[in-house]
Design a binder for these strands. Structure first.
Lengths: 159, 159
DNA sequence: GATAATTGTTAGCCAAGGCTAAACTGTTTG
DNA sequence: CAAACAGTTTAGCCTTGGCTAACAATTATC
C-alpha cells in the first residue's frame, strides 16, 4: 500500500476540472463498477426470461438467443449457470421457469429498468435512444439516484 | 433465424408494463451494451492516466493500481494492451505517457464523465453517490442523452 | 409414421481481466 | 557502495462470456 501520492498537495489549486478524489473513494468507484458487471448479465437474462413469460406465456432458449443476439450455445451455457444459482428451473428441451428468487430478481430488475427508461423519456430523450441507454445504465444507478429519477418523472407527468 | 415469436400478436394488449420491443431493436440494445463493455475498461484506464498526469505530473503503475483497487500485475498487463493499441507509450520501469490518440480519448472520456457527474449533482444526488453512479453510467450514455444532460445542468445553474 | 426442420445440448476453442508468486530494476539509505 | 526497499514485470493460474461444429431431441410436415 503505497502512499507515495499523499506526499504532495492533497487538493491541487488552480487546475482545470475537478480534483482527483481521495484514493479510497476513487477505488470504491471502480470496485462498484466491477461488482455491477458481475451481476449485470445474470440480471439481464433473468429479466428477459421474466418478460418473455409475462408477454408470451413461456421463455424458450431460441427466443432468448434471438433477442440477445447471441448464439444458442451461449444461452444454453448461461441457463446452466442460472440453474446452479437457483434462479431458474429447467428440464432439457423444455421451456424455462423462474424460481421464487428468480421472480424476485426479475421484478426488481424490471422496475429499475422502467424507472430509468421513463426518466430518460421524461428528460426528452428519443424513445429508441432511451431504450438503448436504459439497458446499459440500469445496473449502475444507485437506489438513491433511482428515487430521484422517479420523483422527477412524476413531476414531469403532472406539471 | 426463428420468427416463431412473430406468429403471435406483435403488441399484446392489456398487460401491465411496456410491451416487448421488436426483436431487432431488442437485440440492438444488448449489442450496444456488449460493445460498451469492450471499450469501457480501456477508456477508464486512459482517463485515469490522463488525470494523474494532469494533477500529479506523472502516471505510475502503482498509483493506478491503488486508485483502481487492482493488483499491480493487472495494471502491468493492461498497460501492455494500451501500448499495443497505440494509446500509451512506456519504457520499462518508467512512468507513462499518452499518445496523441490516448490524449484525445482521455479528453473525450473526461468530458463525458464530467457531464454525467454534474448532471447527477444538478438532479440532487449526493456527491459521493453521484461519483459512483457517474463512473458506471458514463460509458452507456449516448451523445444525444449527453447533450440533454448538459442542457439540463446549465438550466439548473442559472434559474 | 417417417422424414425434415427446428430447437437444444455438448465439446472444445478463444480473449479479457482478475489473481498470486517470483524475478527483476531502480532508488534510498546506512 | 552494498543492502534493503519500493516499484515493475513475467509466468502461470482461474472464471466469464463469447464462438463454431457436431450431435441429440422435439416438433412439423408429408
Amino acid at each position: 500500500m503505497s502512499d507515495h501520492e499523499q506526499r504532495h498537495t492533497p487538493t491541487p489549486p488552480g487546475h482545470s476540472g475537478d480534483a482527483l478524489p481521495p484514493v479510497e473513494q476513487h477505488a470504491q468507484q471502480y470496485e462498484a463498477v466491477r461488482n455491477a458487471h458481475e451481476t449485470e448479465l445474470i440480471e439481464d437474462y433473468v429479466e428477459l426470461i421474466g418478460d418473455l413469460i409475462r408477454h408470451r406465456g413461456e421463455a424458450r432458449a431460441a427466443d432468448i438467443a434471438n433477442r440477445m443476439a447471441v448464439s444458442q450455445a451461449t444461452v444454453s451455457k448461461m441457463i446452466r449457470r442460472l440453474n446452479e444459482l437457483g434462479l431458474v428451473t429447467s428440464k432439457p428441451y423444455r421451456s424455462l421457469f423462474l424460481t421464487e428468487e428468480g421472480q424476485k430478481m426479475a421484478q426488481t430488475s424490471r422496475a429499475r429498468h422502467d424507472v430509468v427508461l421513463h426518466f430518460l423519456r421524461a428528460l426528452g430523450v428519443d424513445d429508441s435512444t432511451a431504450r438503448i441507454d436504459a439497458e446499459g445504465m440500469e445496473h449502475h444507478v444507485s437506489d438513491e439516484t433511482l428515487t430521484i429519477m422517479q420523483r422527477f418523472t412524476e413531476q414531469q407527468r403532472t406539471p
